[in-house]
């Protein structure tokens, strides 16, 4: 049994919340709308105040130990808050926090990382915090049933493509998804589908780009590739008949939106779809206005589209 699995046995009433750089930066709309959704569902999370960035998939290519110490410091801070569960909203954060967890199961590695943490003035990490994506947290704690009863304004008439991206479940050896009871399916995830349906939307089920990579890791360093993958996310949504793409990852959201001009000029206007965080759409269904859900923050302007569909 993985460490992730064993430490999930005792859930915190209020798990620690790791925002990461995106939720306090470009992904502000994700942060605000997540809080709205949690409030409507009667769920709460407590922010790790002194957090630092997780290092995503970049730092590990330069230094193994730095790439483990960065997430481990956050996990250690969560432990010193008395928590054994950490919820993050970014796929990249979930990946690197879970990867650190997997690595520190080895005593030698844990000692090495803890020595770095100690010298840097941070508490040491015992390896006992489990990591969860906010989508999984909402699904497990509230589920489609409670979401349905919180809906004030159903997303009727909207056809949505649920885009999970690459690192929500992957790899399961780090995230524990698929091997831990109550988690999503790593090859065919469906939690987002179910939550959006519970909000009254129609979800395209044959969306082949569901779990593909958006190329966000190489958003700037390999434009050709990241534009092509971002275009696929939108184009497959179009082919499946969706008018909107829902994301669960700020890297994906920002990468796709950053490439919109390039996608338009290489693949044509008809490929482009507005892209919104799933929490923005849920918050809208729970009664928030377009402005409150910060739907005009997104470069792809889902607010304009939603207004044309009668949402205010």
């Amino acid at each position: 049994m993985s460490a992730a699995a064993s430490s999930r046995s005792a859930p915190d009433a209020t798990p620690a919340y790791y925002p990461g750089c995106s939720l306090d930066g470009l992904g502000k709309a994700y942060e605000v709308s997540s809080q709205q959704v949690l409030r409507h569902l009667g769920l709460s999370l407590e922010r790790i105040v002194d957090y630092n960035c997780c290092g995503a998939t970049e730092v590990k290519n330069l230094s193994q130990d730095v790439s483990l110490a960065l997430p481990a410091r956050n996990l250690a801070l969560a432990r010193s808050m008395g928590r054994s569960q950490v919820v993050a909203a970014c796929n990249g954060c979930v990946y690197s926090l879970a990867r650190a967890n997997d690595s520190v199961r080895e005593t030698a590695t844990r000692d090495r990382i803890n020595s770095l943490l100690a010298r840097g003035g941070a508490p040491s990490y015992d390896g006992a915090a489990s990591v969860q994506h906010v989508l999984e947290f909402i699904y497990q704690r509230a589920g489609p049933g409670r979401v349905r009863s919180a809906v004030r304004r159903p997303l009727a008439g909207l056809v949505i493509a649920p885009y999970y991206g690459c690192l929500y479940t992957r790899p399961k050896r780090y995230t524990g998804v698929g091997t831990t009871p109550g988690t999503d399916d790593p090859e065919h995830p469906h939690f987002l589908d179910e939550l959006l349906v519970a909000c009254g939307a129609k979800v395209v089920t044959d969306y082949s780009a569901k779990t593909i990579c958006c190329g966000g890791g190489h958003a700037l360093s390999d434009l050709e590739v990241s534009v092509a993958f971002s275009a696929s996310v939108l184009n497959e949504a179009r082919r499946a008949g969706a008018d909107l793409v829902a994301t669960i990852c700020p890297l994906g959201q920002i990468n796709i939106e950053n490439h919109l001009d390039r996608i338009r000029s290489s693949y044509g206007d008809e490929v482009v779809r507005p892209v919104a965080y799933f929490t923005q759409l849920m918050s809208l269904a729970f009664g928030s206005s377009l402005r409150e859900a910060r739907l005009s923050d997104n470069f792809s302007r889902p607010d304009l589209f939603l207004r044309s569909r009668g949402f205010a």
């Binding site: 479940t169 992957r170 790593p186 593909i212 966000g216 890791g217 190489h218």
Partner: peptide
């Protein structure tokens, strides 16, 4: 170097 780190292979 062009691996985008999607981790499907590790999965």
């Amino acid at each position: 170097w062009r691996c985008v780190s999607c981790n499907k292979c590790v999965e």
